[in-house]
Simulated scan of single mutants.
Amino acid sequence: MQEATLCFVVRDGEVLLIEKRRGLGEGWYNGPGGKVEDGETPRECAVREVREEVGLDVADVEKAGELRFTLDGAAHTFCHVYRTSTFEGEPRASPEARPEWVPVEDVPYDRMWDDDRLWLPGVLDGRTVAGEFRFEGGEPLDEAAFVDHDLEWDVSFE
């Protein structure tokens, strides 16, 4: 199972989303994030990915979720979700991502993974979540069909 992160940077009723320019989910919106590297904690990965993808230095990242994804019945990805309102710098585009501040009420769920609309509003509202999301249809995951899920809210992490 691949271990990955997402980090949602929030300020004054807005969230920083990225439009993916390449790789899994290309053309879709999400938070900055990526694969956890060997010897790296998920928290370190989230901080590094935000810096690499949008040029912000984030601090005080708090764990907001743990999401498991399966594909055709097999474990695929375990995603650690973080959020923060503490950052330095101005977002800038990178080869991997085009950042955009979006009002929380205008998050483009129709241009995101199907599962995002189920858990992201709660995370942006300050809640924590643990979930499992099941996809079918084979690789790549972004072309598979979302079929089912389980969610648990207000989970304690760390």
Score class of each variant (00 low, 15 high):
Glu136Phe: 00
Phe87His: 06
Glu26Tyr: 00
Val15Gly: 01
His80Cys: 04
Val54Thr: 05
Leu151His: 08
Cys79Asn: 10
Val155Met: 02
Val54Ala: 09
Cys7Leu: 15
Ala4Lys: 13
Gly25His: 07
Pro140Gln: 04
Arg21Pro: 02
Thr41Arg: 09
Val147Leu: 08
Trp119Tyr: 14
Gly89Met: 02
Ala97Gln: 05
Ala4Gln: 13
Gly137Val: 02
Arg51Gln: 13
Glu132Phe: 00
Ala74Pro: 00
Tyr29Trp: 15
Leu6Pro: 01
Asp154Thr: 01
Gly23Trp: 13
Leu141Arg: 03
Val58Tyr: 06
Gly34Phe: 09
Glu19Ala: 03
Glu143Lys: 14
Glu136Asn: 01
Glu52His: 02
Glu26Trp: 01
Leu71Tyr: 09
Asp125Ala: 15
Gly34His: 11
Glu132Arg: 14
Asp60Lys: 10
Asp57Ile: 11
Gln2Tyr: 14
Val104His: 09
Phe8Leu: 13
Glu105Ile: 02
Asp60Ala: 09
Gly39Pro: 07
Arg111Gly: 01
Val36Asp: 02
Phe87Glu: 07
Glu40Phe: 03
Gly89Thr: 01
Val129Lys: 08
Thr70Asn: 06
Trp153Pro: 04
Phe8Pro: 04
Val129Leu: 12
Pro95Trp: 11
Ile18Asp: 10
Asp110Glu: 15
Glu49Met: 10
Val50Leu: 03
Gly31Thr: 08
Ala64Trp: 08
Gly65Ser: 11
Leu118Gln: 02
Thr70Trp: 13
Glu19Gln: 14
Gly25Tyr: 07
Thr5Ser: 08
Asp114Val: 12
Leu67Ile: 15
Arg11Phe: 00
Arg117Gln: 14
Arg68Met: 12
Gly131Thr: 02
Leu71Lys: 12
Leu24His: 03
Glu53Tyr: 06
Glu40Lys: 05
Gly23Ser: 07
Thr77Gln: 09
Gly138Glu: 04
His76Gly: 00
His149Phe: 15
Ala74His: 10
Glu14Thr: 00
Gly31Val: 02
Asp110Arg: 15
Phe78Asp: 02
Val104Thr: 14
Glu105Phe: 03
Val81Gly: 06
Leu118Glu: 11
Leu6Thr: 13
Phe69Gln: 14
Pro140Asn: 04
Gly89Cys: 02
Leu6Asp: 13
Glu49Thr: 00
Arg134Cys: 00
Glu53Asp: 09
Leu118Ile: 15
Leu56Met: 12
Arg43Asn: 01
Val81Pro: 05
Val10Arg: 15
Pro103Gly: 08
Leu17Val: 10
Gly137Phe: 05
Gly122Val: 02
Gly65Asp: 13
Val81Ile: 15
Arg98Ser: 11
Arg92Phe: 00
Thr84Gly: 06
Pro91Asp: 05
Val123Gln: 10
Leu71Thr: 05
Val58Asn: 02
Gly25Phe: 08
Glu3Asn: 12
Tyr82Gln: 09
